[in-house]
Amino acid sequence: MAILNLGSINADMVYAMPHLPAPGETLAAGGLQKFLGGKGANMSVAATRGGSEVKHIGAVGADGVWAVERLADYGVDVEHVARLDTPTGHAIIAVDRDGENLIILYPGANRELTMAQLDRAFAQAAPGDILVLQNETNLQAEAAERGNAKGLRVCYAAAPFDAAAVQAVLPHLDFLILNEVEAEQLRQATGKTPADLGVRDVIITLGAKGARHIDGASGAVLDVPALPVTAVDTTGAGDTFTGYVLSALDRGLSMADAMAEAARAGALMVTRRGTADVIPTRQEVADAQF
């Protein structure tokens, strides 16, 4: 099977800060690093390193050829990544000494994907393949509807959170992943708890408390604890978790085992500075001591 990822590709400019800047504050950074990033690219790399075949559907500008080449070097299929005249998306990320972050995102080419791209990618998909989406591209609802009609397992990682975007794809979803704050925001918008959304699988990530799976059919709840680590950078940890969960399910693991493996990957990720380039390999996840 394969994972199709309609996802963003960004240049991540990561600034090391003594603390996150307050409104109106001018603050000197202690360092700067440039990484491959974007929630889409992060998830593609994570799922590839988890052991799956991943096909990325996205777009970059002329300034983003390096990003496509790096994705390909990491084993991601980039046949369906378009090269456009619009600048590549990028993120300005401030990370403080405790690993917390602040992100300014410019979507760029990520918001100019075409239906022709979707059609070409879906022509190569097979029932049972996984389609994952995030809220950093256009054509999310269209992709979810087509993926569902083709028999793909449609997953939405609801970030950056927008209640309207989630509701647009909700009728077509098999799998929804969101954090605790986003789950509450969605409840306020829909009047429904995660168990009542009509989605077969819902995962709520709980930060240092771990993650929770809710079976939409039975209402059964599975809690997977977080692992004890000292975080230096939380950027990309949620994307790593998502990519690893999907890869593990793609490889036939149970939800419990998939979440446990993803929790290990996410825990290892927060001990590293950076985004897609430093996502751990499956062997590193297996060998990690917590």
Rank of each mutant, 00 (worst) to 15 (best):
A237M: 05
E145N: 11
E284D: 08
D215Q: 13
S8W: 02
Q124H: 11
R111M: 13
G58N: 02
S247T: 06
A143N: 07
L84K: 13
G37M: 04
T88R: 12
E25D: 13
V60N: 05
L105W: 11
L227E: 01
G51M: 06
A231K: 13
A46E: 01
P23M: 15
N10K: 05
G274N: 04
L6G: 00
R97G: 08
S247A: 10
L118H: 03
A163H: 03
H80A: 05
P228I: 01
T88S: 13
L133E: 06
T230R: 14
F122C: 00
Q167K: 15
I9V: 11
T242L: 11
L173T: 00
E180F: 02
V202H: 01
T235I: 12
L139M: 08
E69A: 09
A82L: 10
R187S: 13
I9E: 03
E69S: 09
P107W: 00
D196M: 14
P171R: 09
A28R: 15
D119R: 14
Y106C: 11
D287E: 13
A116E: 12
V132I: 14
G51P: 04
P280N: 02
R187F: 12
D96L: 10
V229Y: 05
T193C: 15
L186H: 04
A220S: 15
V224T: 06
A217I: 11
P194M: 07
Q33S: 15
A2L: 02
A211R: 03
G243H: 07
F175P: 04
L84W: 09
Q185K: 09
L102I: 10
R273K: 13
L152V: 00
G75I: 00
V202N: 03
G252A: 09
N138D: 10
Q124M: 08
A16K: 12
T281F: 00
L105M: 14
N135M: 05
I130R: 09
M255C: 08
H90W: 15
H172M: 08
E79S: 13
I3C: 00
A149C: 03
E145F: 10
I93N: 12
L105E: 07
A226M: 01
A288S: 13
A183H: 02
S247I: 00
G89E: 07
A164S: 15
L105Q: 09
A288Q: 11
Q289W: 09
F290I: 03
V232S: 02
V95I: 14
I130H: 14
A189K: 02
A183D: 02
A62D: 14
A256H: 12
R97W: 07
A121V: 01
A276S: 15
G236D: 09
I92W: 14
E53C: 00
E53K: 01
F122D: 03
L4T: 00
D63Y: 07
A158C: 08
A237N: 02
K34A: 07
N179H: 05
A217E: 11
N110W: 02
A59S: 12
A144K: 03
A121E: 00
G191F: 12
L71M: 07
H213W: 14
G51N: 07
G24E: 12
R97Q: 12
R212P: 06
D201A: 11
